[in-house]
Design a protein around this nucleic acid. Structure first.
Lengths: 110, 110
DNA sequence: CTTATATACATAATTCACTTATGTATTAAT
DNA sequence: ATTAATACATAAGTGAATTATGTATATAAG
């Protein structure tokens, strides 16, 4: 597991990008996908995930669709048009930040 | 300027690494150096910098030396032995985190 | 010459994203 | 039957940052 400090501020970017790459997903599914993609190094907690999804929805970046799977509720999240256009921005912001950090720390990130 | 969210959790790593690369430095000097290295993209605020330096000192990672420059006080910070051995760890932790993020966001950081 | 900017430290109040803890409920495995 | 996994949600608490404020010297500009 990574030091959770570093993860701060990256959660929204992760959610938006994963939703862009995989289309509509539900919360639990996102945690599993991120766990896979990160080789078990990023484990999203529910206390962080759900409030963050709710916030992105409230901001109009995500839209939801609730589905009953038998007796179980599943809430699918997908990017809105606005959300889609923001993803690129957020990701390149992150990449630019990493480049800057590479210069400051004088490390090669290739 | 970078979204300040992303910077969270990286401050200690920046301070330790800059002090490793440049030897003893005083607070204001660190802000200027980081500003230079980051091309004006990372502007450390005093409210974040000084408490963080104090904390690193309290943890035994930094040692200080106060010098009077004419009538002005300057407090130099330098890595302790313990601090030196931690820098590598912190930097490689950061690099590993970036690699992981690269996989999750599917971006090339080269 | 006085006013603004840069240098140089420090700390208190506040914010906000996150962790931790707790709650509800269904489904599958042992 | 009990535990673990699936699936949602929210409240309390933490802690690193931002913002605001305070002190003081040095220098440039008008």
């Amino acid at each position: 597991m990574h030091s959770p400090e570093l993860l701060k501020g990256t959660l929204q970017t992760i959610l938006l990008k994963v939703l862009k790459d995989h289309g509509k997903m539900y919360g639990y599914e996102i945690t599993q996908r991120v766990k896979e993609l990160s080789d078990g190094r990023i484990l999203l907690t529910e206390g962080a995930l759900y409030p963050s999804l709710h916030k992105l929805e409230a901001e109009g970046l995500l839209k939801t669709e609730t589905v009953m799977m038998g007796k179980r509720v599943r809430k699918y999240y997908a990017l809105t048009t606005e959300g889609k256009s923001l993803v690129k921005e957020r990701v390149s912001e992150f990449v630019e930040f990493i480049r800057t950090m590479g210069n400051v720390l004088k490390v090669d990130l290739a």
